[in-house]
Design a protein around this nucleic acid. Structure first.
Length: 201
DNA sequence: GTTGTGATCC
DNA sequence: GGATCACAAT
């Protein structure tokens, strides 16, 4: 099991085989977090912005000012920061709509660089929610509750996620996050979930 | 925070 | 035609 590099006689490609620059769009969050028009909160440790493509009536991203790439790079010393992110995210949610249900959590495999905590209302009523991946990334175990991340960090000193399994979650059949009813298409699902209430009890 | 687009399936 | 899938992109 030596090198995994594929060398099928195409010598020109070997020149870039070692490089793996992130796609240009992956860094979009970094510029957006400094966009005054998107910011809804800022303090010494974190910045909260409105998601550019909100997947629900309210959808925010809480990001640490320090560049923490992902969940895997979290250490015990970051526990306080994560709790702070959760607290400020929760405050932003209540400020937006005190009666609406929210979830705070992380994607198992985020598309964008820079650690970001999703704060999203559970109505999922948004024209930006268009496909299966969108739905499953917020309604399956692909969405990991912030509190569970903090617990795992406190217990193990690190956060381990099974990436391979996470990709399968995104392909699961569409299912209502409230009553678990299975729907065949996105439009049918969107019609169905409007019948539920997302107010706090 | 991938979205957008064109091909393909139903 | 509508919805999903597969792939490119500054």
């Amino acid at each position: 099991m030596a090198s995994k590099r594929k060398s099928e006689g195409k010598s020109e490609d070997d020149k870039v085989s070692a490089k793996k620059p992130a796609p240009f769009w992956k860094t979009g969050l970094l510029s957006s977090m400094h966009d005054p028009d998107l910011q809804v909160y800022k303090d010494g440790k974190v910045i909260i912005i409105k998601d550019k493509y909100p997947k629900a009536k309210f959808h925010f991203l809480v990001m640490p000012k320090d560049n923490i790439p992902n969940l895997k790079s979290l250490k015990k010393e970051n526990i306080e920061l994560l709790k702070h992110m959760h607290e400020k995210g929760k405050e932003t949610a209540e400020k937006s709509d005190p009666d609406l249900q929210f979830r705070l959590g992380y994607h198992a495999v985020p598309s964008m660089s820079h650690l970001h905590l999703h704060v999203i209302s559970q109505d999922f009523d948004s024209p930006c929610l268009k496909n299966k991946k969108h739905w499953n990334s917020f309604t399956t175990e692909y969405f990991v509750d912030s509190e569970d991340i903090i617990k795992e960090l406190e217990k193990n000193g690190k956060v381990i996620k099974d990436v391979s399994h996470s990709q399968e979650l995104l392909k699961k059949n569409l299912r209502c996050h409230v009553c678990r009813k299975e729907m065949t298409t996105i439009p049918a699902l969107k019609t169905h979930i409007k019948q539920h209430s997302y107010k706090k009890s």
